[in-house]
């Protein structure tokens, strides 16, 4: 819904054009004979991520952020729209090539490492698949990577169960980086970790991004984390992007009512910030049967009227970012933006 603002660099690492991912649901009745419905997990997303950029994707569960991650690494096929990787459509790039260029770090380090294989096997796998290095060369590379993520060579012959959550996530990062991908998809990489461990992993990710000039798509529901990690971000709601722009701008003056509510709902670990009345009432509508018009109109505190129920708001450039909201559809909405 939002036509994205282009990042500074020339060819973006990733460009999504009107991306839709719809999952068919089995209909009701015996063997699902009646009325088939679809879950519109991603429903028309435009997005570009620069080749040396930490781009954030924020939103609550079910908004479609992980589906986008899966599309990027080729685990889920788009239903409509295009995905361009460095200008080339995803379909024209062979899977094997794609995976040497995009890698992913998954959310749960307990589920993403095979418990029956040693760390050396896990981390060197991408080399086995994608390179012709021999075993000695591979192990050398593994040791080097383990060193870089803060583990040491003697960890290589251990099994995942011997490591803590933070250490496992380091292993996952080592595996993702061993074939030098240009782009990294990070899907809630620290949400299973304690804050003191999270700090280590975040620092590590930031260091690698700097050193290797990685483009990153950083997915998280935690806005405090988002603010710390990313330079630009998109906020998603029910499969659509509601606001995209520079992280700094969005936090300084969120324009979309959902963005504003999300920021206000995020608890701040600071003294003197007593909890207020919750900014959003009601629950997330079902993505099988999303509301007509603006997907947020059922919970929106600033709903204008019928127009929100009927018309899907178009993305409009306001104050250097793109907002899909009827409040900001017309020029006179500038004053509203300032009020926020």
């Amino acid at each position: 819904m939002v036509n994205d603002i282009k990042p500074a660099s020339a060819t973006p690492a990733i460009a999504l054009e009107r991306l839709k991912v719809h999952f068919p649901l089995r209909g009701s009745g015996l063997f699902g004979r009646h009325r088939k419905s679809v879950v519109k997990a991603v429903d028309g997303v435009d997005l570009t991520v620069g080749s040396n950029e930490m781009f954030g994707l924020a939103g609550e569960s079910g908004c479609g952020k992980s589906t986008i991650a899966r599309v990027l690494i080729g685990l889920t096929a788009p239903s409509e729209g295009r995905v361009l990787f460095q200008g080339k459509p995803l379909g024209s790039i062979a899977d094997s090539e794609l995976r040497t260029r995009i890698q992913m770090v998954f959310q749960d380090p307990y589920g993403s490492l095979n418990p029956r294989r040693t760390v050396a096997d896990i981390v060197s796998d991408p080399l086995v698949v994608h390179t012709r290095l021999n075993r000695t060369q591979r192990l050398e590379k593994v040791d080097e990577l383990l060193e870089q993520v803060g583990l040491s060579a003697h960890h290589a012959h251990r099994f995942p169960h011997e490591f803590s959550g933070g250490q496992r996530q380091r292993i996952a990062i080592a595996r993702a980086l061993i074939i030098d991908p240009g782009f990294l998809v990070l899907d809630e990489p620290t949400s299973a970790l304690d804050v003191s461990v999270q700090a280590v992993i975040l620092n590590l990710i930031r260091r690698f991004k700097q050193e290797r000039h990685l483009g990153c798509l950083f997915i998280t529901h935690d806005l405090n984390l988002m603010r710390f990690m990313t330079t630009r971000l998109a906020v998603m709601y029910l499969g659509r992007i509601v606001e995209t722009g520079k992280t700094e701008d969005i936090f300084r003056s969120p324009l979309h009512p959902y963005t504003r509510a999300l920021i206000a709902s995020t608890p701040q670990p600071k003294p003197g910030g007593r909890a207020k009345t919750p900014p959003i009432q009601g629950e997330l509508p079902s993505p099988v049967n999303p509301p007509s018009g603006c997907p947020f109109h059922t919970r929106c505190p600033d709903k204008i009227g019928r127009v929100c129920e009927i018309e899907v708001p178009r993305a409009t450039m306001v104050d250097g970012r793109l907002v899909a909201c009827h409040l900001h559809g017309t020029p006179q909405s500038e004053s509203q933006a300032d009020a926020a």
């Binding site: 700090a199 603010r227 710390f228 670990p269």
Partner: peptide
């Protein structure tokens, strides 16, 4: 000090 926040440049892990 390990909590991410906008004011902080780097996080201090324990």
């Amino acid at each position: 000090a390990a909590l991410p926040s906008a004011e902080r440049e780097t996080l201090e892990a324990i």
